[in-house]
């Protein structure tokens, strides 16, 4: 008994690729080969950062519980730093200016 479904699916017509198909694929291949590979997410650095944050949080919690200082005490200590605020501001400004100067070649698109 003839199987018409089988016959229909077996006698599928074929198509011919366009004459420029190969060149079109190769253009895409060359483009692909000259492009830089996509940046991968820095999982290792991310992991180290998360671990460091956890460690610091744990250490701070442990120290905090060991020292047994209350919030008002901490505020009093911080208030005593008022006298050195100008020096801290100068130091911060100096560091920022140095960082900006170091970054200038990259920001202007030129190698150092």
């Amino acid at each position: 008994m003839p199987d018409e479904l089988d016959e229909i699916l077996r006698s599928e017509e074929t198509i011919e690729p366009s004459p420029d198909f190969v060149s079109s694929v190769m253009r895409a291949v060359y483009r692909e080969s000259t492009e830089l590979p996509p940046l991968r997410f820095p999982w290792s650095r991310f992991g180290i950062g998360v671990a460091a944050c956890g460690l610091m949080t744990g250490s701070a919690s442990a120290l905090w519980s060991r020292v047994e200082v209350s919030a008002p005490h901490v505020l009093i200590h911080l208030a005593s730093l008022n006298s050195v605020v100008p020096q801290l501001a100068y130091a911060t400004a100096t560091i920022l200016i140095a960082l900006v100067l170091l970054s200038l070649p990259r920001l202007t698109g030129r190698d150092a």
């Binding site: 074929t14 198509i15 011919e16 690729p17 198909f21 190969v22 694929v25 190769m26 291949v29």
Partner: peptide
């Protein structure tokens, strides 16, 4: 890779 594309284009397109 062009050799591969030329040899297999008919199969993959179909």
């Amino acid at each position: 890779f062009g050799d591969i594309v030329r040899r297999w284009q008919h199969r993959l397109v179909n």
